[in-house]
């Protein structure tokens, strides 16, 4: 096994026309942590995750996943849950499980079925008959049923009711491999205060600050949620 960090990002840049979504972002994350990725809309959270997942080939700088640039090797290690409904409407959860089994060597179908049942979803129903929240749960169950080395979860709890949120966070806590890295992007900070042990704050495509969650609390004397609000009320330093 390599000694490279789980995720090593150096001077990462990505533009959408005149707008820089990522502007020289540097970040190193080690395995075995659950990292909360915070930032306002447009701060670059989703762009960062998409580059690491291998969905955006055009960027400057470097993104290394256990030492690999995004590509087939890194994709075999990364389980990405986008904030998109990526499954075809016409399949059932059962078929989706079979699809994941075909594509991902680290996928555990039994675990997926157990999770889908636990989340209260009938695996035989086609996805188009499920609600948006139910579809998100199916996708979460699939993503968490890979024994991946890195999980990238983009807004996994934003579209569901508080009760389901609880189940989803518990799923993240109990299902991930302790040697894996989990990155959760969200603007619902209060919900994941206790779940994350590290936090990264993005602003305008750069890391504003990052660190151990409890150390940040001790240093600033406030919750991550308060810290986020106070930080982002201030105008962008130029």
């Amino acid at each position: 096994m390599s000694t490279a960090p789980a995720l090593e990002i150096r001077n990462l840049g990505r533009r959408y026309g005149p707008i820089a979504a990522l502007d020289g972002l540097d970040l190193t994350l080690d395995a075995g942590r659950i990292v909360a990725l915070f930032g306002e809309n447009g701060s670059g959270k989703t762009t960062l995750l998409k580059i690491v997942a291998g969905l955006l080939s055009e960027y400057t700088g470097e993104a290394l996943i256990h030492g690999h640039a995004p590509g087939p090797e890194s994709k075999a290690m990364v389980s990405f849950l986008p904030d998109q409904s990526f499954l075809p409407d016409t399949v059932s959860a059962r078929t989706a499980v079979s699809m994941f089994g075909d594509f991902f060597a680290d996928f555990d179908a039994a675990r997926a079925f157990a999770l889908i049942a636990e989340l209260g979803i009938d695996a035989h129903r086609t996805l188009k008959t499920l609600s948006k929240g139910q579809r998100e749960k199916v996708q979460l169950a699939l993503a968490m049923s890979r024994r991946a080395r890195i999980y990238l979860l983009d807004e996994p709890i934003s579209g569901v009711d508080p009760a389901a949120r609880e189940v989803i966070l518990r799923t993240i806590l109990t299902q991930y491999d302790p040697g894996a890295l989990v990155v959760i992007s969200t603007h619902l900070i209060a919900d994941i205060e206790a779940v994350a042990d590290a936090a990264v704050f993005l602003r305008a495509g750069r890391v504003l600050f990052a660190g151990d969650a409890d150390d940040l609390r001790a240093r600033h004397g406030m919750s991550l949620d308060r810290l986020f609000r106070t930080t982002y009320q201030n105008p962008v330093r130029s």
Binding site: R33, I34, L173, T174, D197
Partner: peptide, 10 residues
């Protein structure tokens, strides 16, 4: 961690 809803490292 599961019982308390808290990060395992914590």
């Amino acid at each position: 961690a599961a019982e308390l809803g808290v990060n395992p490292n914590t």
